[in-house]
Design a protein around this nucleic acid. Structure first.
Length: 487
RNA sequence: UCCUCAGUAGCUCAGCAGGUUAGAGCAUCUGACUGUUAAUCAGAGGGUCGCUGGUUCGAGUCCAGCCUGGGGAGCCA
């Protein structure tokens, strides 16, 4: 490579004195490690994106971020040491590599900084059209530029936390002896009952084959049968648990509901542990321990990002997280919940009556005003819950559990599963579910059935709670919602 | 899908009872000044007022439909 100064195109400028030796020897450092390292005066190399540039007569200050931390490192460049147009071409959003000495900062606001000796511009960023400013932007605007919003402090923090949370989930289960099971994303069963599904097909949509009855003929489709994107890995997860003992799934989940709320996505990630020999109480214990572990892990490993979110996004965030750690989840039955709601001195928009499902206003009241802490509600009427939940002896309720969080609502839904073949089959017939499509599910109850339990945790809902963000579209990189699949 | 609010400069918003050339702050550009920290000061450029149609001498402003976004509800995780 030509190593001379190239003032015209500004691709490269190296200070002659120090240049020949350094180029090969210096390993790139991440901003995070430099900010945490001792000041040695040694030469370092950093690469990253320019957040801001401030100019003085003799010196230019560049705040550089490489994504390794929310904090920027300050680059100090003496104006006289660099070609004028090189410094001019460095602007917010641009990408540069900087070689220089790591020194103690003369200014306030940072302990260390880099005194630059060479700067290479990887990519300029036209300041007239670069949409991110130094000042804050609305979440709505940033959502429209999802390809660039990673470069903001907020989304940098959110997605570093998202990664760490995903890692902690795997670590928690691995350490407990759970196996990560990959359940299918394309499924032929429509019996999970968790909502509208997206069709998966290779049929020509302009010329759909029909059979004699006028129904779509799927025999010529790719799988030879009707298929959809999964709405839950639970049924397959149970198959794994009834052999491997304890498994969990963690993958994308799809719901074709026309839901337009800050808590719903058409494509989201869900964690579904499924455990043999766990009863409903074991299930609740696991759910509580799991969530607390995850919160503790983020508090311990993402403190810089949390501190930023705490002061800029949701005041009181860290207190809220600590509160959850320090308090036991309140465990009540559905019947007790109804009694609490009936004795509440306030009017309900939706009636409170045993047998009716709890509405958002009811759940919010219980969690945010009555108990003022996370609540687990169990033993719901069987009519309002799924067919696979274990029936209680009272003949009216099932061993379901919903974990409700302040501000978020339902974050976990789970149950002990019905392991009795006859009872399960009866329920399937009662609800007129497609019995023949569930043959494999039923066989697990025929051959060595076992008591078992599991739950589903909405990954993005937990992200909402942990980051303090208020819209679920801002805790997933590329949200998929009705009328929106851009990026 | 229902209810509700909103859509004006790159961003965040103001715009009165329809009435001349549509405003502010920030951003950008130019200049000044400065080891700066969301730097400061001065100046400049920048608009199909979401779209379509209607009422009117005249519409950013009123009416209708549509599109997009926010909040609430339902569905759920």
């Amino acid at each position: 490579m030509d190593l001379c100064c190239l003032p015209d195109n500004n691709l490269l400028f190296l200070k002659r004195k120090i240049f020949p030796r350094m180029k090969k020897e210096i390993r790139r450092s991440k901003v995070k490690e430099l900010l945490n390292s001792e000041v040695t005066g040694k030469d370092v190399l950093v690469k990253g994106w320019v957040r801001t540039k401030r100019e003085s007569r003799n010196v230019v200050f560049i705040a550089l971020n490489d994504g390794s931390t929310i904090n920027n490192i300050q680059i100090v460049a003496e104006t006289s040491e660099f070609p004028e147009n090189l410094l001019r071409d460095i602007s917010t959003g641009g990408c540069i590599a900087v070689t220089g000495k790591l020194v103690e900062s003369q200014g306030k606001g940072q302990k260390v900084e880099i005194s630059a000796s060479a700067i290479e511009i990887y990519g300029k960023s036209d300041p007239e059209s670069y949409p991110l400013q130094k000042k804050g932007h609305s979440m709505e605007f940033l959502r429209e530029i999802a390809h660039l919003r990673f470069r903001t402090n907020t989304f940098g923090a959110v997605f570093r936390i998202r990664h760490t949370l995903a890692y902690a989930i795997h670590k928690y289960f691995n350490d407990k002896g759970f196996y990560y099971l990959h359940t299918p994303i394309i499924t032929g069963s429509d019996c999970e009952g968790a909502g509208e599904m997206f069709h998966v097909t290779t049929l020509d949509l302009k010329n759909i084959p029909l059979d004699e009855k006028g129904e779509v003929d799927f025999s010529n489709d790719f799988f030879g049968t009707e298929t959809n994107l999964t709405v839950s890995g639970q049924l397959e997860g149970e198959l794994g648990a009834l052999a491997l003992g304890e498994i969990y799934t963690f993958g994308p989940t799809f719901r074709a509901e026309n839901s337009n709320t800050p808590r719903h996505l058409a494509e989201f990630w869900m964690i579904e542990p499924e455990m043999a020999f766990y009863d409903i109480k074991d299930n609740m214990d696991l759910a509580e321990d799991f969530v607390k572990y995850l919160i503790r892990y983020i508090l311990e490993n993402c403190s810089d990002d949390l501190a930023f979110l705490n002061s800029n996004i949701y005041k009181g965030l860290i207190d809220r997280l600590n509160f959850v750690l320090e308090n036991e989840f309140r465990r009540i039955t559905y019947t007790e919940a109804i009694e609490a709601l009936l004795s509440a001195e306030r009017k309900w928009e939706f009636p409170v009556e045993w047998g009716r499902d709890l509405q958002a206003e009811h759940e919010r009241y219980l969690v945010e005003q009555y108990y003022k802490c996370p609540v687990i509600i169990t033993d719901y009427p069987k009519e309002i819950k799924a067919f696979y939940m274990k029936q209680n002896d009272d003949g009216k309720t099932v061993k379901a559990m919903d974990v409700l969080f302040p501000g978020i609502g339902e974050i976990i839904g789970g149950s002990q599963r019905e392991e009795d073949y006859e009872k399960l089959l009866a329920r399937i017939r009662e609800l007129k579910l497609p019995e023949k499509d569930l043959w494999w599910y039923l066989e697990t109850r025929k051959f060595g059935t076992a008591p078992h339990s599991g739950f589903g945790l909405g990954f993005e809902r937990l992200m909402l709670f942990i980051t303090g963000m208020s819209n679920i579209r801002d805790v997933i990189p590329f949200p998929r919602t009705p009328k929106n699949a851009e990026f």
